[in-house]
């Protein structure tokens, strides 16, 4: 279990992280979301023991990151932001070096290096200097470094940054697979990534946790989640809106598009999923509205994200 207890970090007078608490159990993949400078990297740096917290504590697998730092570090793999690597080493040399520091030697080290090279698709560049690699490979080399010792806990700061869509997909697949028996935290500002890999997400802004929920739960916070989008043609001279709003279970409506007699109206329900769609369809038929489509909308993470983080700023 990765545990953060009221982690707080001051840089001078500036409070970069403010009493952040959460836990991540094995089998969970936690997405860490937030605008730039929200405190994501700072929180991760405290979790990995790179930055000493100003207050609060963190533990990796029960080992306090300050008091029992070495044991905590042994249990985890860390991919720092921007994927730093030793540019003057070859890929194999770099991974061998990490293996040595991780206490592996001889056959064990070779095996671990080979396995990781295979997993991270580095076969083709294994003898190249890391400094000559493209950003995508660079990122994968550093990622390889973090999983080399098959750690129980993984902390990844923007693991898909700089990768092309295919590579992103590969890395996400890998993370998802590893997530079955490991506890993983990853930060990102790509919202689709949260949907693609995370079992849970935390949105942080100005150093404070604003939301901690499943991706589905977060989406449900969107105002639009569960609303109905109805597209229809109205008969000449009829205003359908008051009638629609009078339908049982409708809070309000909103005209999204209007082109002559064709309309797209969003209808917000009082309660999600209580069969409002059927009642709307019934009403439309009764009033002679030619209903073309009626869909239930799913909340979008970016809207939720924006709503949560903007609220914080104002």
């Amino acid at each position: 279990m990765i545990e953060a207890k009221q982690l707080t970090k001051f840089f001078g007078d500036h409070k970069a992280v403010d009493e952040v608490s959460f836990t991540v159990e094995k089998g969970e993949i936690l997405g860490f979301l937030g605008p730039n400078a929200a405190g994501k990297s700072t929180t991760m740096r405290m979790l990995t023991g790179y930055l000493p917290p100003s207050a609060g504590a963190a533990a990796i697998g029960g080992c306090d990151i300050v008091a029992d730092s070495l044991n905590a570090r042994r249990k985890m793999g860390y991919l720092p932001e921007n994927a730093p690597v030793y540019e003057d080493m070859t890929v194999t040399g770099f991974l061998q070096f990490i293996a040595r520091i991780r206490g592996l030697s001889g056959r064990e080290a070779d095996d671990a290096v080979e396995r990781t090279i295979g997993k991270c698709f580095l076969e083709g560049v294994r003898h190249q200097m890391v400094g000559t690699l493209s950003k995508g490979f660079n990122q994968r080399v550093c990622f390889a470094q973090s999983i080399l010792h098959d750690p129980e806990y993984l902390i990844l700061d923007e693991p898909t940054d700089g990768l092309d869509p295919n590579q992103k997909h590969e890395v996400r697949t890998m993370i998802r697979e590893m997530g079955r028996d490991k506890a993983i935290i990853l930060s990102t500002h790509i919202l689709e990534e949260v949907d693609a890999v995370c079992t849970r997400a935390i949105i942080i802004a100005n150093g404070v946790i604003q939301a901690d929920d499943t991706p589905k739960g977060l989406r449900a916070r969107s105002e639009k989640d569960g609303s109905l989008a109805a597209r229809f043609t109205v008969p000449e001279g009829v205003d359908p809106i008051p009638g629609l709003e009078a339908v049982d279970g409708v809070v309000k409506t909103e005209v999204m598009e209007q082109d002559g007699l064709k309309m797209l109206v969003r209808i917000y329900p009082v309660k999600k999923g209580d069969g409002l769609a059927a009642r709307i369809a019934e009403y439309a038929a009764g009033q002679g509205l030619a209903l073309e489509s009626l869909t239930e909308e799913i909340g979008r993470l970016d809207e939720v994200f924006r709503a949560i983080t903007m609220k914080q700023e104002s």
């Binding site: 740096r45 730092s69 070495l70 570090r73 860390y78 921007n82 730093p84 690597v85 030793y86 520091i101």
Partner: peptide
């Protein structure tokens, strides 16, 4: 410069 300080200081060595 390379940013590897963050790497080396989070590896299990003091």
């Amino acid at each position: 410069r390379q940013g590897t300080m963050e790497l080396i200081l989070t590896l299990p060595i003091t």
